[in-house]
């Protein structure tokens, strides 16, 4: 479990995080949402000790991030950032993942086992001899994720995973997240991609101006237009279509994604 208790953070002047309290369980799937500058990335950088609280505590399982080493924390928590192409330096995809594992001192048999496993999970097994620099943007994103997953961390944090991804890559990403959640991994995505969140319906933690302003089910938060707009986000587009039906009492609650909306209309059509 990741436990955040009364976390405050500042680089020196204003507080970028204020009074954050949050519990993330094993196997949970969470979206941390909010406008640019809300503090989302600053918050998740506390999960693996990249940043230390100015006040308050962050505990990962039995490790206090203020005291534990980045090495120990990184074993448990993997962070995958927005621009993967900046972090590659190996000659092949295989070597890139292997390097990540060597860092933790794993023996060769285990490394080979893990590399094969993550490359298969991330649909990269056909590309293991390719240079990371010749991969497409989407493949590079998946390679960065493969490196992060190589040593089997329990908590996986993805910063804006859908940014710049085409439809196919979003579908692949959805499947990967589903597999990880099935494996009891905690998956935390930092995103302002409301349509993606509406489709996958994780628990949503909404941030604004350094604070958590809502924490709950996607269906409740994503259908709360006022709350979203005051946090600098827009509701998913299906809401605009489904809201008038809700207002007229035809559906029981506003619907946030197209599949649920279609299902509801089919029910209505059947009577």
């Amino acid at each position: 479990m990741i436990l955040v208790e009364d976390l405050w953070f500042t680089y020196g002047e204003d507080f970028i995080l204020k009074n954050i309290n949050l519990e993330i369980g094993k196997g949970e799937f969470i979206a941390i949402m909010g406008d640019n500058g809300a503090g989302k990335t600053t918050l998740v950088k506390h999960f693996n000790g990249l940043l230390k609280p100015s006040k308050g505590k962050v505990i990962v399982d039995d490790l206090d991030t203020s005291k534990a080493s980045i090495y120990d924390l990184s074993r448990k928590v993997a962070l995958v950032f927005q621009y993967p192409e900046k972090m590659f330096f190996s000659e092949t995809v295989w070597d890139e993942v292997n390097f990540a594992l060597k860092n933790f001192g794993f023996d060769e048999d285990y490394r080979i086992h893990r590399i094969n496993k993550v490359l298969a999970l991330l649909w990269l097994d056909g590309l293991k001899d390719r240079s990371p620099f010749t991969l497409s943007g989407g493949e590079q994103r998946r390679l960065a994720l493969a490196c992060a997953l190589a040593w089997d961390p329990d908590y996986i944090v993805l910063d804006e995973p859908t940014a710049g991804q085409d439809k196919y890559q979003r579908e692949i990403l959805t499947k990967i997240i589903q597999v990880l959640v099935e494996q009891e991994k905690s998956v935390i995505i930092v995103t302002h991609d409301i349509e993606f969140v509406a489709e996958l319906k994780p628990r949503v933690v909404l941030m604004y101006n350094g604070e958590i302003v809502a924490d709950g089910a996607a269906e409740d938060i994503l259908s709360n237009e006022k709350l979203l707009r005051s946090s600098g986000l827009y509701p998913p587009s299906v809401i605009d279509v489904s809201r008038p039906l809700f207002d007229k009492g035809i559906i029981k609650k506003p619907i946030i994604n197209i599949h649920d909306f279609i299902a509801a209309l089919e029910m209505l059509a059947r009577g």
Binding site: D240, V241, L245, K248, L265, A269
Partner: peptide, 13 residues
């Protein structure tokens, strides 16, 4: 969206 909604109300449901 509002126009589509109106259409749904009128024709679909």
């Amino acid at each position: 969206a509002e126009d589509l909604s109106r259409y749904i109300l009128k024709e679909v449901v």
